[in-house]
Amino acid sequence: MRTPFLMAALLLLTACDGGGDPVQQALRDTSSANHAAATKTTEEAAVDHAAMGHGAGATPGDQAFAASEAEMHRRMGAASGETVDQAYIAKMIEHHRGAVAMAEVALKESRDPEVRRMAQVVVDSQTREIAEMQAWKPTAAQ
């Protein structure tokens, strides 16, 4: 995504006013912005998602998934871990939960038997994978 990179570059340029290390300041500012974005409510995230050309104002099909997509992105952004492994597991659990939420929308709204079958497969497999990831324990070598 270009927005965080552009924000970091802009902050880096504006931080060069002689007050401390501009790179460190840019990193702090970007971290603060990312934290603020990750702590938005589902409604705020849906509005932002719509402003980017998704969700409200998009097709009725897109609108059906806007809230679940926004919530998935918010939860993935908030998920973290001390190591790459732990962060990966935390973020993927949220990603899979988002897939389940989207599949549940399809199960509720779709009348196409093949789409409903695929959505049920997603619910079953992603739920199983969430349980597998939740059971994962870091190895002592980490």
Rank of each mutant, 00 (worst) to 15 (best):
M1R: 02
M1L: 07
R2H: 13
P4R: 01
P4N: 00
M7V: 07
A8N: 11
A8W: 14
A9E: 12
L13V: 12
L13T: 08
L13K: 13
T14A: 11
T14F: 13
A15H: 00
A15L: 01
A15I: 00
D17S: 03
G18F: 04
G18D: 03
D21A: 01
D21Y: 05
P22E: 00
P22I: 02
Q25I: 04
Q25R: 15
A26D: 01
L27G: 06
R28P: 02
D29R: 12
D29T: 00
D29E: 13
D29F: 04
D29V: 06
T30Q: 04
S31N: 10
S32V: 08
S32Q: 13
A33D: 01
A33Y: 07
N34L: 13
A36Y: 07
A36P: 04
A37V: 05
A38F: 03
K40R: 15
T42G: 12
E43Y: 08
E43C: 03
A45V: 00
V47A: 11
H49S: 04
A50R: 07
H54W: 11
G55K: 05
G55A: 08
G55M: 06
G55S: 00
A56S: 14
G57F: 05
G57N: 02
G57E: 02
A58V: 05
A58D: 15
T59I: 07
T59M: 13
G61L: 14
D62L: 15
Q63T: 09
Q63R: 11
Q63L: 12
F65A: 02
A67F: 12
S68V: 15
E69P: 01
A70Y: 04
A70S: 11
E71Y: 00
E71R: 15
M72R: 15
M72K: 12
M72F: 05
H73L: 15
R74F: 06
M76F: 03
G77N: 07
G77P: 00
A78D: 10
S80A: 14
E82V: 06
Q86I: 01
Y88G: 04
I89T: 07
I89V: 15
I89R: 10
A90R: 02
K91S: 08
K91L: 05
I93M: 03
E94H: 00
H96W: 05
R97S: 05
R97F: 02
G98D: 04
G98E: 00
A99Y: 06
V100I: 15
A101Q: 02
M102C: 09
A103Y: 06
E104M: 12
E104C: 10
E104N: 15
V105D: 07
V105E: 05
A106S: 13
L107Q: 10
S110L: 10
S110M: 11
R111F: 09
P113D: 10
E114H: 13
V115E: 08
V115H: 05
R116Y: 09
Q120D: 09
V123E: 07
V123L: 13
D124W: 06
S125V: 11
S125N: 14
Q126F: 08
T127I: 03
T127P: 07
E129G: 03
E129D: 14
I130K: 02
A131G: 07
A131T: 12
A131E: 14
M133F: 14
M133G: 03
M133S: 00
Q134D: 09
Q134A: 09
A135H: 08
A135E: 11
W136Q: 02
W136I: 00
K137G: 03
P138V: 04
T139L: 11
T139H: 14
A140G: 03
